[in-house]
Simulated scan of single mutants.
Amino acid sequence: MADNEFGYTAWGMDWVRLAEPLSRTRPEPLLPRARSIARNDGVRLEIEGRAVRAHLHRGGQASITHVEVAPLSRAAVTALVHTIPDPTVLTDETHRALLDAGHSPAPTLASTDCSCSARSAHCLHVFAVLYALARRVDENPRLALELQGYFDDHPDSEAPAQEPRWTSMHTLDPDRFFTPAT
Rank of each mutant, 00 (worst) to 15 (best):
F177R: 04
A110H: 13
H55Q: 13
T182Q: 12
T25Y: 10
G42L: 01
R44Q: 13
D156M: 04
A70W: 03
A181W: 08
S117M: 08
P160F: 01
L124T: 06
G59M: 10
T88V: 10
R35G: 05
P180V: 08
H125G: 04
R119I: 02
D86A: 11
V89D: 13
Q148W: 06
S63M: 03
R142P: 01
A79N: 14
H125Y: 02
A101R: 10
A106Y: 01
S168Y: 04
H125M: 03
V52S: 01
A97N: 14
T9N: 06
R135W: 06
T83Y: 03
T78C: 07
G60V: 07
L172T: 08
P105C: 09
E93H: 10
T167R: 12
D92N: 14
A161S: 13
A97K: 13
L145Q: 06
L30N: 08
S104W: 01
R96H: 12
H125W: 00
A70N: 09
D113M: 05
G42N: 01
P27G: 05
P141W: 11
D113S: 14
I84T: 06
I64S: 10
R39Q: 11
P164Q: 08
D113T: 00
T25S: 14
A97Y: 01
E28L: 07
F127P: 00
E48G: 09
A101L: 08
A144I: 08
V137A: 12
T94G: 03
V67N: 07
P85F: 04
E48N: 13
T108E: 15
A144W: 03
L133C: 10
A51Q: 12
F178H: 12
T9E: 05
D100T: 10
R119F: 13
A2Q: 07
H154W: 06
L22W: 11
R74E: 14
A132V: 07
